[in-house]
Design a protein around this nucleic acid. Structure first.
Lengths: 170, 170
DNA sequence: AATTTCTTGACTTTTTTACTGGGTTTCTCT
DNA sequence: AGAGAAACCCAGTAAAAAAGTCAAGAAATT
């Protein structure tokens, strides 16, 4: 999963849309204004989101965009995957043709990235648009302080799991 | 925390170094060869890692680099933070001066990114170099299935990957 | 018919990454 | 002492990706 500002913009815009509870479509220009994103840029993003079935659009005067389903049924990961689209196969690094099963410790790191990717995805799919709108993001920030990994390694999963809002986190 | 290929390279090189268990320093050129990374590029990375105290260096013939402490005491997050350095304050988006406490739902997303960043950091600081070398990366992939945040949504399949090229300051 | 709005594609700018090359310093070995 | 092997340092650059812009067009409502 790729995390860029593009994905963030997409989420911001979707959150904006989700706060407009009316059944009326919302004009792109309104969202662009509120979120301070260039309208043309948003157009590109919304085109993708629409193609992925996250948005419905209405043309003509009074038209605009609206969520295709309730905010509680849209995961943040859905949005980011749609916006950052290029679901390229996981290649280990820049793009060496021979893949990553080389000699030495070359892709010992493979599993690590794979797992990290899972972690991120799991987290983002545990949060819905509705969670964000209703500030239901719970913070682990203070609970665990970045634990020294040092001498005795405590179970890695300790770090990863905390009950989440709707689903579990990670 | 930023996740880029630069950080990945740094981790790969550190893993490589960690597999050379000897007390002898390892020449940069060897690592560059094995990991197929340009030597000069690695120099830059290693300079940062050294400045952050993760590496010790020995000059002159027979010199090279060595881990400054046991692999079990070096967290992956240490490496990535060192390599991707610019620990700029988490600004919500591109850089609007007014920060992110705007009107409307603007930075409802703030907490989300903040929390995601924590998640990633927590995970990466739960894994040590030694864990990677000894393939002690545990997979959550199957264990928890990403709980549908909503009634019926297909399971989020394979999170594609960590940063294509440019990734995110999560 | 006219206006509002989405839709599309190509295009430009900016930023970042990845890499190169030159030169200097520090060390070891002969 | 001198030669050479390595780390160091700096500045620049080519390419790629991301971020943003522009302009023409199509649908629907008024």
């Amino acid at each position: 999963m790729k995390l860029t500002t593009k994905g963030r913009y997409a989420v911001m815009a979707m959150v904006d849309l989700a706060t407009c509870v009316d059944d009326k479509p919302v004009a792109l220009s309104d969202i662009a204004d509120r979120q301070e994103i260039s309208q043309s840029y948003l157009e590109q993003l919304f085109a993708k989101l629409r193609r992925c079935g996250l948005l419905d659009s209405v043309r003509g005067p009074g038209g605009g965009y609206m969520l295709s389903r309730p905010a509680a049924e849209i995961r943040i990961s859905d949005i980011i995957l749609a916006a950052d689209e290029p679901l390229k196969a996981t290649r280990c690094h820049t793009g060496s043709p021979q893949g990553c099963i080389g000699n030495r410790g070359r892709c010992l790191t493979h599993d690590l990235w794979e797992e990290l990717s899972q972690q991120v995805h799991l987290y983002l799919s545990s949060v819905t648009l509705d969670d964000v709108v209703n500030k239901r993001i719970i913070g682990t920030a203070g609970r665990f302080n970045a634990q020294p990994a040092a001498p005795s390694i405590e179970t890695p999963q300790a770090a990863t799991l905390v009950g989440g809002s709707v689903a579990e986190r990670v």
